[in-house]
């Protein structure tokens, strides 16, 4: 009895090992199952999901106009102080002083891509871009100004 069990053990053990080897052997010979993405080579065809949260950008239209009122809602919504809104006062057409955005400072190095600022913005000025290639040689390059130079607020946005 002991001997039969002993031999059975060996036999079953061998069989289990061979089943495992069958799988690795299958993948060794079937190269179409390979899942590697050759990243820098496939950059041209690589398509990120459009909702992918890669960085915050401000939407500008073709006239270099945006919809940011400088309300600071995004700054308040951000959990880790990534956004700093610096406002200035402009004289509008009627000669009244009006608050407007001067610099929208965005610290990419602090951002956790949590999407809270996007949701908070009442005018949908900012959005998430699916760009993920953020590496730079110097950290200071990660501090970005989101409103383009010379841009101004769209007419009619309050």
């Amino acid at each position: 009895m002991f001997i039969t069990n002993y031999i059975k053990d060996i036999f079953n053990g061998m069989k289990s090992l061979l089943t495992g080897m069958k799988i690795t052997g299958y993948y060794f010979t079937h190269h179409k199952e390979i899942i590697t993405e050759q990243y820098p080579d496939n950059r041209a065809t690589l398509k990120m999901a459009d909702r992918f949260r890669g960085e915050v950008v401000m939407i500008h239209d073709e006239n270099n106009e945006h919809a940011c009122t400088g309300c600071s809602a995004c700054e308040l919504a951000c959990p880790n102080g990534t956004i700093k809104i610096i406002n200035k006062f402009e004289l509008n057409a009627e000669g009244k002083k009006k608050k407007a955005i001067d610099t929208f400072v965005y610290h990419l190095e602090l951002c956790t891509m949590c999407n809270l600022c996007i949701i908070a913005c009442p005018t949908d000025t900012i959005k998430m871009e699916p760009n993920f290639e953020h590496s730079v040689f110097d950290r200071s390059q990660l501090t970005k100004v989101l409103n383009h130079t010379g841009s101004k607020i769209k007419a009619g946005v309050e």
């Binding site: 052997g25 993948y27 190269h31 390979i34 590697t36 050759q38």
Partner: peptide
């Protein structure tokens, strides 16, 4: 290379 093909990878290329 053998390891890579068994692991659905390409290996050194």
């Amino acid at each position: 290379k053998v390891a890579a093909y068994m692991q659905l990878r390409l290996g050194p290329n």
